[in-house]
Structure formats: C-alpha cells, structure tokens
Nucleic acid binder design. Structure first.
Length: 497
DNA sequence: GTAGGGTTAG
C-alpha cells in the first residue's frame, strides 16, 4: 500500500498515456523527439515529472531547456518545478547556482516554501557550509515559513556535523515530544532516529547510539539505513565484535543488504584483518549481481595497498578503470596512494596533471598522499618542494607536516626536523610520537623525554610503546633517576587526563 | 531531505 508521496512509475503512466513514451525518450537523451511529441500537451504536472527525471539524470541544462520550452508553449513552472531544480543544483553544482534559481523563482512571482528552504539547508549541510545552513533556518522563520519535521531533521544533522551533539539532542527531544504517538515507523520520524544514531556515532557516543537503537527497536523494525549507520559507527569506533553481532542479526532477520551495506561490511572485514572473509564477500557481492561502484573499489584498493598487496591493488585499479567507473577525486587520490606505495612517482606526478585535465582540483589529500610517498621513499627534497607548492596553493596541512618531520628524521636529518617542529604553530600527538620515537632511535633519550613531557602538558598522549621506548632508553643508558622521574610524571599525566 | 570510499606516527 502506498499512501501519499508521489511516484513516477506505473501509477502516473495510467493517468498520462504518453508519459512512458516521453520518459523513455528523455532517458535515452533524444530530447528533440521529446519536443517532437509536442511538449504542448504537457500540463505543469507533466512538466514537473519531466524536469525531475532530467534532474535525476544530472541533465540540468536540458531540464532548464524544457522549462523554457514549456513557457514558450504556455505551460508555466510552479513551486514544485523550481524546488526540483534547486535541489538538483544543490546536489550537483553548488549552492550559489541554487541561489540564482531561487532568485529567478522569486522574479517569476513564485514564493519559496518550506521544501525550497529544506533543499537549500540540506545542500548547505552536505557541502559543509554549516553556518549557512543554520542561517537559512532563521531566515525561513523570518520569512514567516513554518518549518516541518524535515527542517528540524536537517538542522539536527547540521548541528551534529558542527560537533554540537548537545544542541542536536535538544532538537531531537523536541521532535519526539511534539508527537503524541512517538512511533518511529513514520518516515520522517524514522529519519530523525537515523540522524540521531548517526550523529551520536560520528561524535564519539557509539554506546548511546547503540542504546537508542536497542530502545527503539521494539517500536519499529529497523530499516536498512539504520543497520548501515550502526554497523559503520561500531566499526569506526573499533567495536568490531558488536558490529559482527549486528551484521549477523541483519543477515538472519533483517532487510536485504544493499551496495552500501556491502561496502561497510567489506571495510569491516579489512579493518578487522579478516582478509579472506573480505575477499569471499567480494565474490559473493558479484555473484548476487551487484557491480562494484567507485566506493567499493576505493575501499578494497586502499585495504589492499595498506596490507602490501600491491599487485592485487593494481589489478583492482585496472578493473575500476576498465569498467568505466567515473573517477572522482577520492578515486584519483586512491590511485595516487597506489602509485606512491609502489614508488612509481612518474605516474604519480602525471596523475596530478590528469586530475586537472579532468576538470577536478587536487585537494589536501592528493598533496599529502604524494608528500607522504616521497618522504617514505627518501625523496625529501622533492617532498619539501611539493610541500611548498601545496602551501602556495593555500593548503596548510598538519598531516603533511607530520610526514615531513618523520621523513627528515628517518633520513638522518633529525636536527632539521627539530627546527621544523619549533616553527610549527599546531602540533598533534602524531607529531610528538613521531619525533619522540625517532629521537629514541638516535639514542637522544633526554631530548625525547623532555619532548614527551611537553606533549603530556599539552593534554596529548603518545603511544604506550613510544613511552616504553623512552623509559627503557633512559634506564639502559644510565639515566635511572631521570627514568624514575619521568615514570611518575607519566602516571600523574594519566590520572589528570 | 538521514547511511558507505581517500592522507600522517607506531
């Protein structure tokens, strides 16, 4: 049974006899033939279905052309037409483009509604323009438009992304309390729970997320998305055992998994070093008729690279490219990672050009992966050169600096690394761990000890094995007293942290 | 309109 909402399949086809023919032409891209069957016959409703299908296929230019033709034939777009277009521009182009549609919409005398603003807020949240998203909410209120449950859902999501779980929780509380019968099986309310569970996971409250999942389970059968969110959250928090349990529950009595579930599960297997199960799942996915998408290829490739299975990773990369997967920046960055790991810097630098030729802009990941690769291979000068280039492009990145620090240390330039360290404004526990460890290797234990204490004072930690390296080093090289002092300071820092 | 992929220390 289907109550409310709209669908573009059979039910519409019965009401509009030539719709299926129309849509077929739209989908195969023969727009001239669409024109041929006379758009004149279209009502605004049909125009909207047409615009929606083109938008879904990312054919925004064609969607606009259809609207223009519609106007010429006397079919005027309405608020739904513009909302569809605004949503698509938010997804595939950018927020500024969406705002220009909003402007044209107002010029055409059509007032935006709550759905218009929800699309803009969701678009801003997706593109991490979080303040803008919150401002849009306030602006909507000032315009006298009443927010609906989706507006609150999006606001919650935005607050979680901003790292404000307390404020997000307040909204969640309000939404739940505003419903007389808080059964989360109602679609937008199910989304509220999903956003809450996801937000809790992403903000480090996996236990609370798990608790909420268990508590609301009795009120509704968890949908696939809920499972996906929770499994992913548990995996990322290192709670592999609990994740395993949920996967089992899903396999035994849950909904049929989709490509996203499989990708999360693949990541789970590779993360928990169950490579054989991972590879087995890969063939299972294929046998079920799923084809690998860019997400799956990147997950598998990076797992293979990390575990040193370069040959298999290469085969995977080739398959991805042969299968016509449209490469986005993440795929390119994964390829960059592969070329760097196999020390094929010719291909790596060539890839930089390719990315730009493909109309994409390298980001901080691209540059950092290259710098890391150059450092590990001992090409410190080239790494520094690329670091300077990256800086001049406006990417300042702690991860890249950490790579340089480590690279300098490992290739006998520990004093240069210390100089760089002194000049750094921001340092994290990786910076300290790397330096302290390398100082130990160079048997400069007193210096390492001093640095480690600075790290503790800054509220950061270094790995246990690094702590032990410093303590053992001090003891074994005759600094027993210093070792004792350091030990008590470490204990104090542990208590304070 | 809410879920999945890419970088750094050991």
């Amino acid at each position: 049974m289907h109550l409310g909402g709209h669908r573009t399949d059979g039910s519409s086809r019965k009401r509009f006899p030539f719709l299926s023919r129309l849509l077929r032409f739209v989908f195969i891209g023969k727009l001239s033939q669409v024109m041929y069957i006379r758009v004149k016959k279209l009502s605004t409703r049909l125009l909207n279905i047409c615009v929606a299908s083109l938008c879904k296929a990312k054919q925004l230019g064609k969607a606009e052309a259809v609207i223009v033709d519609g106007v010429r034939l006397g079919i005027l777009p309405d608020v739904v037409t513009y909302n569809t277009l605004i949503d698509a521009y938010c997804r595939f182009v950018g927020l500024d483009a969406a705002y220009s549609i909003l402007y044209r919409m107002k010029e055409a005398g059509i007032s935006p509604d709550v759905i218009t603003y929800n699309s803009l807020m969701a678009g801003a949240t997706r593109k991490r323009l979080l303040k803008q998203s919150l401002d849009l909410f306030d602006y909507m209120l000032r315009e006298g438009i009443c927010p609906d449950i989706w507006s609150f859902n999006i606001r919650m999501h935005c607050l979680f992304k901003l790292g404000k779980p307390d404020e997000a929780y307040k909204i969640f509380h309000d939404i739940i309390n505003s419903h007389l019968s808080p059964l989360p099986s109602h679609p937008p309310l199910a989304a509220t729970f999903n956003i809450m569970i996801n937000g809790l996971c992403k903000n480090g409250y996996v236990d609370n997320a798990f608790g909420l999942f268990r508590n609301v389970c009795h009120a509704f059968v968890p949908r696939l998305m809920t499972y996906n969110i929770l499994i992913d959250g548990l995996c990322k928090a290192g709670r592999l055992h609990t994740a395993r349990g949920i996967i089992k529950e899903l396999q035994e009595s849950g909904p049929e998994p989709n490509a996203i579930t499989y990708n999360i599960m693949l990541k789970f297997y590779f993360r928990s070093k169950q490579y054989d199960q991972g590879l087995q799942l890969m063939s299972e996915i294929r046998s079920k008729g799923f084809t690998f998408d860019g997400f799956a290829y990147c997950t598998v490739m990076s797992a293979l690279i990390k575990t040193g299975r370069i040959k298999e990773a290469n085969a995977c990369a080739e398959q991805m490219m042969n299968n016509g997967i449209e490469l986005d920046l993440v795929s390119y960055n994964t390829l960059m990672y592969l070329y760097c790991k196999e020390c094929n810097f010719g291909a790596a630098f060539k890839l930089l050009d390719e990315i730009q030729k493909g109309g994409l802009e390298c980001d901080q990941y691209t540059h950092t992966i290259l710098i890391s690769g150059l450092c590990k291979a001992g090409h410190i000068v080239e790494a520094q050169q690329h670091f300077n280039k990256m800086n001049s492009l406006g990417f300042s990145n702690l991860a890249a600096l950490n790579c340089l620090i480590d690279g300098l240390c490992k290739h006998g330039r520990i004093d240069q690394a210390m100089e760089l360290f002194e000049a750094m404004e921001i340092k994290d526990s990786i910076t300290y761990t790397s330096l302290v460890h390398n100082l130990c290797k160079a048997r400069r234990f007193l210096c390492a000890s001093k640095l480690m204490l600075t790290c503790f004072r800054g509220g950061m930690r270094v790995l246990r094995c690094t702590q032990r390296a410093v303590l053992d080093g001090l003891r074994n090289s005759g600094f027993r007293n210093e070792a004792r002092k350091l030990q008590s300071k470490i204990q104090l820092a542990r208590m304070l942290n």
